[in-house]
Design a protein around this nucleic acid. Structure first.
Length: 458
RNA sequence: GUAGUUGUAGCUCAGUUGGUUAGAGCGCCUGGUUGUGGUCCAGGAGGUCGCCGGUUCGAUUCCGGUCUUCUACCCCA
């Protein structure tokens, strides 16, 4: 049988895992610095927790887990006979794989509300699953790195989360653009144009502006029964780049003015520190997830810095006023953002942004030339490891060529060759694999040389 | 979910208007070189031509189905 992995999933080679861990480590350290604590939730959730939280499209993309045992005997027979997949689903599947980390978090907060202190700041770095058609930068299994805070309406947190975005991407040396908008501003636009009832249709249309142009947006809004008068009003508002201008257009919409006030409040906090990356107000930013209610964020790699790169958003998030409400806990507001680790990885790989030392973790490989030397080498190996050096010993006294080839394959920066001569003097043949230079050094001297050199425990 | 696309050696890819032993480069193994890898030279191993079925004297090649890859739509990280 030919081995394979399911569609949209993949294996990771050591070098890839090390690189990915470099991303995780950078993100995690930043989260912790800003006062967030780790939690974990199961990969499976009850389907009742997940369904209906991501819109109709999201429900379709949920992975369902078949019930154990003789599931068909308990299936809804009528639905089964009619081949009604949706009807039969509830009777044969009660669990599903998590689609994101935010909804399970909301469930977590409600269940553990008496065990946690509000505002509760948590982070989670775990895989999620979506039954989407795979494409570039789109997988069925991928990691999300989420930070959220629930139990406070302070716009301080919006500012803090954008600072986290800025800091992480600065540390990763990935030039990015952080786009900001507010759902209330979008609602205000719909209200000002007199199509508040077409709010969702309007936002999904204008979200595509940079992709399909103003003509495409106009076309889509027409197809979704938004009249021409409203469309021209919306178009005018889309040209606005400053909040002050927008305010003038929002005299008739209280929600819209509230949205602007929130953005101004955000800036009052955020503008106290100069960001490294671009942070811009983008009135066309909409985001599909329909639980957002206030500020929304999206991050993309900077097209000016990487003109050849084609990649969707590498992060997103926003404020959700009542996510816990559906689980029976009213009036708890939350805000959070997510990092798409797989896409960040792809961008960094494509643009060559990983530091050179994130490839291999081994610092030195010992090579013994005969059985006696091999035992001696193992003692030196113990000493090196005790000193905290990532060291290994070739498992037998094989041909020099074979052992050196292995050293090359491991991409190890140094080797130490040990034969009868070295055993006599206690000085090992310490070799730099890049330059080929070789010198006689005692184990203690080798420890000094290697301390901190390309030291990585990822 | 809709439409298209891809699959041949470990990797990247040729090729076959249906016909006997399916090729290249890189990689791998052995030797040249008994304590020195990356270069060079010589030799070698490695293929159910994605899978299942159909047409045919004969299918890797044609047809159907299926899985997979990549892409557009949808949606999204």
């Amino acid at each position: 049988m030919k081995p394979s992995v399911p569609k949209g999933t993949r294996d990771f080679l050591p070098a890839e895992v090390i690189k990915r861990n470099f991303i995780f480590k950078t993100i995690r350290e930043t989260f912790v610095k800003y006062g967030y604590q780790p939690i974990e939730t199961p990969v499976m959730e009850n389907l009742s927790t997940l369904t209906g939280k991501y819109g109709e499209e999201g429900d379709r993309l949920l992975f369902k887990v078949l019930n154990n045992g003789d599931f068909l005997s308990k299936a809804n027979e009528k639905a089964l006979a009619e081949k009604d997949s949706n009807g039969v689903l509830a009777s044969i599947s009660k669990r599903g794989l998590r689609y994101d980390l935010t909804v399970p978090f909301a469930r977590f907060v409600v269940m553990h509300q008496n065990d946690i202190a509000f505002p509760f700041k948590r982070y989670a770095i775990q895989p999620v699953w979506r039954a989407d058609r795979p494409q570039k930068g789109r997988y069925q299994e991928f990691y999300q790195c989420d930070v959220d805070v629930v139990g406070s309406e302070s716009l301080m947190y919006e500012a803090e989360l954008v600072q986290i975005y800025d800091e992480v991407f600065a540390k990763l040396n990935l030039k990015s653009v952080i786009k900001i908008n507010n759902r209330k501003v979008l609602y205000g636009m719909a209200e000002a144009a007199g199509v508040a009832d077409k709010f969702v249709e309007m936002t999904t249309a204008i979200d595509k502006l940079d992709k399909v142009g103003i003509e495409g947006v106009r076309k889509e809004m027409r197809e979704r029964d938004i009249d021409d008068a409203a469309i021209s009003k919306i178009e005018k508002m889309l040209e606005i780049t400053g909040l002050a201008e927008l305010k003038a257009a929002f005299t008739e919409t209280e929600t819209g003015r509230k949205g602007i006030a929130e953005l101004e409040e955000f800036h009052a906090y955020f503008d106290t520190k100069q960001p490294t990356n671009k942070v811009v107000f983008d009135i066309t930013l909409a985001r599909g997830l329909n639980y957002y209610t206030g500020c929304i964020f999206e991050v993309a790699a900077d097209k000016e810095a990487y003109p050849d790169l084609v990649m969707g958003s590498i992060g997103g998030g926003g404020r959700y006023d009542d996510l816990t409400g559906i689980f029976g806990m009213k009036g708890v507001s939350g805000v959070g953002v997510s990092f798409g680790a797989a896409r960040i990885f792809d961008v960094m790989e494509e643009m060559n942004l990983f530091p050179a030392e994130t490839g291999e973790t081994l610092q030195i490989l010992l090579i013994a030339l005969d059985d006696e030397a091999h035992k001696y080498a193992f003692r030196q190996l113990n000493a090196l490891r005790a000193a905290g050096i990532n060291a290994d010993l070739y498992p037998e006294a094989a041909k020099m060529k074979k052992m050196m080839k292995y050293a090359n394959a491991r991409n190890v920066p140094f080797t130490a060759i040990i034969g009868s001569e070295e055993m006599k003097t206690g000085k090992l043949a310490f070799k730099n694999m890049e330059t080929g230079e070789q010198e006689k050094l005692g184990t203690g001297e080798i420890m000094e040389r290697l301390k901190g050199y390309r030291k990585s425990n990822l």
